[in-house]
């Protein structure tokens, strides 16, 4: 069944509403919200203990002293509160139950609807980073860089978020062709956590691997903003680092657009 996309005059307000509704929905599961923030406490304790144990009995690597690596891991964990969200899961779900056909009959731009919905979810979790940060500070000391570096970090985080968003979107788009992709998404998430530098800084990887991994889109998600934060990427290299992130964002956004076009063209209702 082919569907024509309705193109009414564009108004922003409905999308703001979509985002608000998504935020409210996330806030409903209070027990879930509470436990996920509270677990930060234990996870920070573990990461501190692990790095302290490693640094106690070995020579510290020059580029990452103990305080820097604890800062790195803690900020990475806070970032993951936002990065781990699959904002466009709703696309996958509505392809599954067929309700996507109804979405297309509504007077809205469907991709923008998905983006608004995802933004609402993400903003809610971004706010959660604050209490999580408060809890983390009970156990660890985090280095705070200069305001300028902090600003570049947030810009880089935003670019990295965009890259993650596109990767999730592309995966969810594959649901146009195959229907069950949860396992594939899990695989991608687990690999991203490792080769993106969330679990272990890429600087600790053997040099040959590092040279490859630092240039992949996964590093653009976690490693680049984090290395800016801890000062390993100096101001003179900011432009190059952000440009590489922007490059990946553009490439993946282009792939996302193509996937979306091809997908909607061959949209087959799954009996919904």
């Amino acid at each position: 069944m082919s569907v024509t996309v309705a193109r009414p005059r564009f108004r922003l307000e409905p999308y703001v509403e979509f985002a608000k509704v998504a935020m409210a929905k996330e806030a409903t599961y209070r027990f879930d919200v509470f436990t996920s923030v509270a677990s930060v406490l234990i996870r920070v304790y573990i990461l501190r203990t692990v790095w302290v144990a490693l640094y106690a009995h070995n020579a510290a690597p020059k580029e990452l002293p103990l305080h820097a690596i604890i800062t790195y891991s803690t900020v990475a964990m806070l970032m993951s509160l936002v990065m781990d969200i699959d904002q466009t899961r709703v696309l996958h779900d509505s392809l599954h139950d067929g309700s996507i056909v109804l979405d297309f009959t509504k007077p809205m731009r469907v991709p923008l609807y998905f983006i608004a919905n995802g933004t609402g979810e993400v903003l809610f979790h971004a706010v959660l980073m604050l209490p999580a940060l408060g809890l983390a500070l009970l156990f660890v000391h985090i280095d705070v860089p200069s305001l300028g570096t902090l600003a570049v970090f947030f810009a880089s985080f935003l670019l990295g978020y965009g890259v993650g968003f596109c990767i999730n979107f592309i995966l969810n788009c594959t649901a146009f062709w195959t229907l069950e992709i949860t396992a594939v998404q899990f695989i991608v998430t687990w690999i991203t956590d490792l080769v993106g530098g969330e679990l272990v800084p890429l600087l600790l990887f053997p040099a040959a691997l590092q040279n490859v991994l630092l240039f992949l889109p996964f590093a653009a998600m976690f490693s680049t903003p984090l290395l800016i934060y801890v000062g390993h990427i100096p101001p003179s290299q900011y432009a190059v680092a952000l440009a590489l992130q922007a490059f990946w964002l553009i490439v993946l956004a282009a792939i996302s657009t193509v996937m979306w076009r091809l997908g909607t063209q061959r949209l087959v209702s799954q009996g919904g």
């Binding site: 396992a183 695989i187 956590d193 600790l204 053997p206």
Partner: peptide
């Protein structure tokens, strides 16, 4: 495949850390 990746990434992370630092508490 996910089961393999799940255990594989855990072990790879351990391997990376213990190549950079030869021992953890002995």
């Amino acid at each position: 495949a996910f089961t393999i990746v799940y255990h594989g990434t855990a072990l790879a992370a351990l391997w990376v850390v213990l190549t950079a630092f030869p021992s953890m508490n002995g």
